[in-house]
Amino acid sequence: MPRFLVYLVILTFGHTFQVFSSSPAEIPAGSFTPLFGLDKNQKAFRVDAFLIDRTPVTNSEFNQFIKTHKDWRRSQKTSLVADQNYLKHWRADGPSIKQLHLPVTNVSWFAANDYCTWKGGRLPSTLEWEYVAAADSKKADASKDPEFTSKLLKWYEKPSGDENPRPVGANGENFYGVKDLHQLIWEWTYDFNATFVTADNRQDGDKMKNFFCGSGAINANSREDYAAFMRYAFRSSLGASFTVNNLGFRCAYDKKN
């Protein structure tokens, strides 16, 4: 709870208008079987309780960050920490009015990480992100529900250029009260490139042998895995300085006590 107060204080002093935006969602501890990362003989990971932003970070919020962190201005950044497309959708050093409530994209992992640190938090781990993102509106784990996963696949197969940008929060909230984990943008995770999806999918069999040893996490017969597979594939194509048109982020916070 004290942690949470700290967060509120930061919000209040930093950007008054955001006090009215909803506080992060509390995610209870639980166990989760992700697509990748399990050790031999391990059935699931334990996920500790944590907090996570209800919606992705918007252009407006990110602009607040930049106002106090001049080195993250579009004109200031160096190619080491963000590639040349960094914030390319902004005009000059700020977003247009139309973009204020759209999720911020074209940000590198370094930028996202700095933002979350500034917020008193961090980027969610891939495990945490997948844990929350497995929920649909009714249940905590819908990852085996064909209706849920086929909806996700539909979004993945469509290029972003064909979609109208939508403001954050327009989609309904999931079981945990979190919105827009799917069907809006891709999101950075803290350990985005730690998983072992190689660039050449067909070699994964080798690499995964030690990781899964027949744990059945990759079951080609269940198409629900394909949705997760595509997220892991996307993350593994990234470098920390990369920026992508449809890649944004949200922050997570440790829960004390």
Binding site: Y156, S160, A199, M230, A233, N245, N246
Partner: peptide, 9 residues
């Protein structure tokens, strides 16, 4: 292409 949603090779 920047408008694409997925990595490719």
């Amino acid at each position: 292409h920047p408008n694409n949603k997925l990595p490719h090779n």
